[in-house]
Simulated assay, not measured.
Amino acid sequence: MPTTIYFVRHSHSVYTPEELERPLSERGKRDAARVRGILKDKNLHAVCSSPYKRAIETVEGTASFFNKKIDIYEDLKERQLSGEPVEDFSQAILKVWKEPEFSFPGGESNREAQKRGIQDFLEILERYEGKNVAIGTHGNIMVLIMNHFDPQYDIEFWQKLEMPDIYKLTFEGKSLLGVERVLD
């Protein structure tokens, strides 16, 4: 029986320098209700999330609908691009995607972030084999995890993501069978 993962990129958030506690904006809260509406007929067995508030808030209505506790996975948090603000975010993100081993001081390379995220993701695949799971997460780490299974998920794919966004990934064991966007 296949395992279905609904990757949910978080809704729009209010910018704060504190990553962990950055909340959803009013628009983000409305969009989180939309996420719940889309996922309510997916027969979810579990809801997981990054520890970041904006990811949790995006899936908490879904978890409540299914009467599920949100399982927090520390390593599904967003990648740390740099220890200090970068001058040009677009150029910085392009550099780490072009050079997967490169990292800015205090940041993670694509390889490091992918390795971290994959460990938690594979644990979820094993724990919920044959089940339907929603995962609240972030654009960059989500695409890095998807890229582990299929290299077509790259920076160009990441650049097209919306806030929120939902992708259905179907697995047989640890083999990716298909990916489909489910956000309307």
Rank of each mutant, 00 (worst) to 15 (best):
E87W: 01
N110H: 13
E112V: 15
K69D: 14
F65Q: 08
E60Y: 07
G83R: 04
K115T: 15
S64P: 01
I118R: 08
A92V: 00
G106N: 12
A92Y: 00
D71N: 09
E99A: 01
L76F: 12
L125M: 08
Y73W: 06
I124A: 13
E57F: 06
Q119W: 09
E74N: 13
Q114A: 11
K131W: 10
V59F: 01
V96S: 08
Y128G: 13
G117R: 13
V59Q: 05
I124V: 15
L94V: 05
I56Q: 04
E84C: 00
G130F: 07
W97S: 02
A134S: 04
K95C: 00
V59W: 03
S64I: 06
R127A: 09
Q91G: 11
F65S: 05
G107N: 10
F65C: 01
K95G: 01
I56D: 04
K98P: 00
K98H: 05
I72W: 06
G130M: 09
F66I: 13
Y128D: 10
K115R: 14
E60K: 04
V86E: 03
N110Q: 15
I135L: 01
V133E: 10
L94F: 04
R111M: 05
E108T: 07
L81F: 10
Y128S: 07
E78R: 11
Q91D: 13
A63K: 05
A113I: 13
V86K: 06
Q91H: 03
E87L: 03
K69T: 14
P85V: 02
A92C: 01
Q114P: 08
D88W: 01
F102L: 00
F65M: 09
L81C: 09
I93R: 06
K115Y: 13
D88P: 02
F65V: 05
I135S: 04
E129W: 07
E78G: 03
N110T: 15
P85T: 00
I56C: 04
L81A: 10
T58P: 02
I118M: 09
I72F: 03
E123W: 14
A113R: 15
E123Y: 10
S64V: 05
Q119I: 15
T58C: 07
Y73E: 07
E126M: 12
T62R: 12
E123N: 15
E57C: 00
G83S: 13
F66P: 08
E87M: 05
A63G: 08
L122K: 14
N132S: 13
E112S: 14
E108I: 06
G83C: 05
K131P: 09
D71L: 14
